[in-house]
């Protein structure tokens, strides 16, 4: 049965790729409990992995003394996740489209494209060190 009360959590993790595993499993379990579809769970999982790895590699530049904060809320209609690193931030508009020209053959640079494709909302704060992502169980219509 789908829970009535939203699930939310805020946690600070070590800045290493494998640190995501526990909280990621927790989020995926919550999504299933709130009856998100398999496709939605796959998409949120991929976006979460890509955003966290970006924070570890490009935000905190693999510095193990830094941390990454994850905050999420899941309810019957949507999941919202914010990931904040301790880096200097970046301007997402400066990231080249990995589908264009020779970029297609570059081994890196597809994380943001995938996050944007699988989530309904992907926004960075002004300083570029926090990404807010949201996915709706049913996409809102533009009335």
């Amino acid at each position: 049965m789908t829970p009535e009360t939203p699930a939310s959590c805020s946690i600070v993790l070590e800045s290493r790729p494998s640190a995501l595993e526990g909280i990621c499993q927790q989020i995926l379990t919550e999504l299933k409990a709130f009856s998100f579809s398999e496709d939605d769970v796959f998409g949120v999982h991929l976006a979460l992995e890509e955003a966290f790895l970006n924070a570890v590699k490009h935000g905190n530049k693999m510095d193990p003394t830094k941390t990454i904060k994850i905050e999420y809320t899941i309810d019957r209609g949507k999941v919202e996740i914010a990931i904040t690193d301790e880096g200097d931030g970046f301007d997402p508009s400066n990231i080249p489209d990995p589908r264009v020209g020779d970029n297609l053959f570059r081994p890196e640079g597809r994380g943001l494209l995938l996050i944007g494709a699988y989530m309904d909302v992907m926004e960075y704060n002004d300083s570029g060190n926090c990404v807010f992502m949201a996915k709706y169980k049913r996409k809102p219509t533009n009335n």
């Binding site: 796959f42 992995e49 790895l53 597809r110």
Partner: peptide
Amino acid sequence: EFLSSAVLGLLLRLSK
């Protein structure tokens, strides 16, 4: 059943 974009990078390096 699941992979990250880092695997795509591996495949591109291998393909090259």
